[in-house]
Design a protein around this nucleic acid. Structure first.
Lengths: 173, 173
DNA sequence: GACATATGATCTGCCAGACAACACATATCG
DNA sequence: CGATATGTGTTGTCTGGCAGATCATATGTC
């Protein structure tokens, strides 16, 4: 790039409302990049972190549920958990109610590591929202949360997949 | 703002503020899925659509700029544009100012197809935000746009949203 | 002008992840 | 008990991301 002092700043007059997909994609890529630095030590980086997070805070009963919740392929989840187990962060236990299933639980080490990482991840998240004022960030977080939660519920009926028939045993809560 | 009088969905009770990454990821996956149906005819699906969109509306002078803008690898961009050219949607022209560079321009066919698809994509986008009221969707779009533009050091001109006007009202989750 | 360096585009090779198909154990239902 | 469905793991394939090399051209320096 030659005598072009200002080109790194793209102009926004070209950025229209129709760029919704670009906006989400850009945000997600920035988020991934920011978080990747923080969780570099966790096996499989941000994905491993997310799995650990759901294992600790979520209540996904099986590995399949875990995978579906995070949008990860179930065959990948096998290796992912393998490596988390090897790192001493989680354990595979036999599910007491279904001997086909493995209940993935966090070790003390895993919970401690997660607690430490959560703070840094939160900071990394905020760094991706630098353009917004603090209260606006909370608005964005709230809206995204409602959209994502709403999607999970309609996803069962709406998007391609046939309604998931829950076995009686699976009905918890 | 943490006060959550009645969560709309039981399953969402477990979803905390800390799930920002999960929320974005879920939204992006839903967006990709919804758009993929609409743009199935465009080579490489949603990615091809986004490239076409930027070619028509954007201001990216080279393929590298195009790739960087969309977060796509530059080597992939080559094949991507190859297929768009083969489909008759875009053309590679020699850049008048830099004979190394190729300026990618849309054909009439490409512009017509894009115009048609944009409407359907817009509808698909909205379908991913079913959980929000129309005015809330606009707030979300605006916030995402400012975040994404901020991440790319894009000057949010003209449209210059004043700070979100209904911050608290928007969060009724 | 000659030269070194930087950039745009392409190609090649390697690797991680998505995906399908299969196998096996077990659960559920008739 | 038998049929079917589900959870998990394994294997193989395919696409895309990524690093490196190559070639053409542009730019800066002398």
């Amino acid at each position: 790039m030659a005598t072009n002092p200002e080109p790194t700043h793209e102009r926004c007059r070209a950025r229209r409302e129709g760029d919704f997909g670009w906006h989400i994609g850009t945000l997600l890529r920035a988020y991934e990049a920011a978080v990747a630095e923080v969780v570099a030590d966790v096996p499989h980086g941000s994905r491993g972190y997310q799995v650990l997070d759901v294992v600790v805070h979520g209540d996904q009963p099986t590995q399949v549920a875990l995978a579906a919740h995070l949008g990860i392929d179930r065959t990948v989840m096998t290796y992912l958990i393998d490596d988390l187990v090897e790192a001493g962060l989680v354990l595979r236990e036999q599910s007491p109610t279904d001997r086909r299933a493995r209940r993935v639980v966090a070790t003390a080490t895993g919970r401690a590591l997660l607690a430490e990482l959560e703070r840094r991840v939160r900071a990394a998240e905020d760094s991706t929202m630098e353009a917004l004022a603090p209260d606006e960030r909370e608005v964005l977080r709230g809206l995204l949360r409602r959209v994502a939660c709403g999607l999970r519920d309609i996803d069962v009926t709406g998007a391609g997949d046939p309604p998931v028939e829950l076995p009686m045993a699976a009905v918890r809560s």
